[in-house]
């Protein structure tokens, strides 16, 4: 199967590979997988708690070229977006940008799901951390 130039570019020069510190409270982590092929994708988003804007993103994907390219592309796509806007990103955007063939559409679905999972994880932490509207107290010591 022939990969598009954009897939090859993202595969050879993946953007934003790596991880953020697990302990960083502003980071949401989404781990998703495609059980048909065994690919696993981790997407981390650093989200500003005040503006709720995604300031940075990292990914690690173990899978085929299309899965790596899809996750690399979404790290660029989500940066600077408000989380509610990022939640509306559809896999079809990824399919079009990377010119994915029908057999690789599930890779783009995986990347879309990773965004939702990462934001969901961040929201869960922040709602747990701030059950009331009161300002957070310093938790030193």
């Amino acid at each position: 199967m022939a990969y598009s130039d954009k897939v090859i570019d993202h595969y050879n020069n993946p953007r934003n590979v790596g991880s953020f510190d697990k302990g960083d409270a502003d980071v949401g982590t989404g781990i998703v997988g495609a059980p048909e092929c065994g690919d696993v994708m981790k997407l981390q988003l650093r989200i500003n708690p005040e503006s709720r804007v995604i300031e940075d993103a990292r990914f690690k994907t173990f899978g085929c070229g299309s899965a790596i390219a899809s996750s690399s592309y979404v790290t660029e796509l989500v940066k600077g977006k408000h989380i509610e806007e990022a939640m509306t990103i559809k896999n079809t955007v990824i399919v079009q940008e990377l010119n994915l063939p029908p057999v690789k559409i599930h890779c783009s679905v995986l990347a879309e799901d990773a965004i939702k999972a990462a934001i969901g994880d961040w929201k869960k932490q922040h709602e747990d951390a701030r059950p009331s509207a009161e300002p957070r107290k310093a938790q030193e010591g």
Partner: peptide
């Protein structure tokens, strides 16, 4: 279908993979 509603990887399995 195996992939329908089934994309979350259990935490312990994800940890082993990574």
């Amino acid at each position: 279908k195996l992939g329908d509603d089934n994309q979350r990887v259990p935490a312990n399995l994800a940890a082993l993979v990574f």
